Amino acid sequence: MAGEHGIYKYEPNKIACIAAAGLFGASALIHLFQMIRSKAWFYTSFCVGAIMMTAGYVFRYISANDPSSLGPYIGQSLCIILPPSLYAATIYMIYGRLVLFVDAADASVIRPTRVTKIFVIGDVFGFLLQSSGGGMMAQSGMADMGQKIMLIGLFVQLLFLGFFLFISLIFWKRMNKSTRHYTVPQYGKHGWKALLKMVVCAAVIIIARCVFRVIEFAQGHDGYLVSHEIYMYIFDSAPMFLVQAMMHFVYAAKVFGIGNFAKLGKSESVIELNQRGYV
């Protein structure tokens, strides 16, 4: 039910909405430009997530001007909660291509050809649960059920992210013990190690953000976190912008070499490509 500040438990900060929309929007445009220029289409879900995040804070600004209106509130809620799942999907695809790029499929707990399928399917499942739960939470009669579905979706996302972090760290450990990493070509400013570190770091940040959201929703509609806007910006907005920003500087397409990553997406190893004269 609407209170003193409409649907919110506080008066939304309009300046913060504008600042967040500007930062996420600028980052989204850069990511879109980078993807089109390099034809790295596996970044599509990431770009969609960045655009959604921007739209989320635009909706939040509109909602702040009319805090009793349900439409903008649902829009800001879904567009801010869901993008991390899209970021994670891109991270999974980068890892699969990275394993093929260094020609070390045997060092990965899961075959690189299966990583994308397994984790993206799990990610989509979590995404759908969160989106349906988020929509239900905005309706007073279905708020409790929506909250439970949202929590299940977040736990699914955490489960897959946690397992992904585990296999990424195992792969990192195995490659550090192998001499093969000395023979991996470096096409740009950053090599495969920097890309793997970035992927691991991004996964850790998204996991931390999911933990925050789990605690927030577990506290209920009148919980401390949901009643104080500042925590959303500290533990959700800032970490997600950090993920977007860090992925500008270590760009997978440049690490793999422009043109090579398309072939990696077809699940062929670098050695096989060399033998066929593609790279």
Rank of each mutant, 00 (worst) to 15 (best):
D123K: 00
M137W: 00
R111S: 14
G122P: 06
F125I: 15
S131W: 05
L161D: 10
K117P: 01
A138L: 06
M137D: 10
T113E: 15
Q139L: 13
G126Q: 01
V120L: 03
F119D: 02
D144Y: 05
D106R: 11
G162S: 07
I110N: 10
G141T: 05
T116A: 15
G133Y: 01
A143E: 13
Q139F: 14
M145D: 12
I152E: 10
I152S: 11
L165W: 02
D103L: 12
M137Y: 01
F166L: 11
T116K: 15
G146C: 03
T113S: 15
Q139P: 01
F160K: 00
R111V: 00
L154E: 15
L129M: 14
D144I: 11
V115G: 03
L154C: 09
M136D: 07
F101G: 04
L100C: 11
D106L: 07
F164E: 09
G135A: 05
M136A: 13
F125Y: 06
F163I: 15
T116G: 04
S131N: 08
F119H: 08
D144F: 09
Q157E: 12
M93K: 09
V115S: 08
M145N: 13
V120F: 03
M142L: 12
D144G: 11
T113A: 15
K148M: 10
A143L: 02
M150E: 00
G96E: 02
Q147L: 12
V156C: 08
V109G: 04
G134H: 06
V115N: 09
A105K: 09
M150L: 14
F160H: 01
V120S: 04
I121R: 05
Q157N: 11
F160Q: 00
F101W: 08
D123I: 15
S140Y: 13
F127H: 00
I149V: 14
I118C: 12
M145A: 12
I94V: 15
L129Q: 02
G162E: 04
G135L: 10
V120M: 03
M142G: 05
V102T: 14
F125S: 07
R111Q: 10
Y95A: 11
S140L: 12
I149G: 02
M142A: 14
A143Q: 12
L151H: 05
L98T: 06
R111L: 12
D106H: 15
V156T: 11
M142P: 01
I121V: 15
Q147E: 12
S131E: 04
F127L: 11
Q147T: 13
G135F: 07
D144P: 02
A105M: 07
Y95I: 13
T116H: 12
Q147Y: 04
D106C: 04
T113C: 13
A105Y: 04
I152T: 06
M150A: 05
F166D: 14
V115P: 06
I149T: 07
A107V: 09
M93N: 07
I121Y: 10
K117C: 01
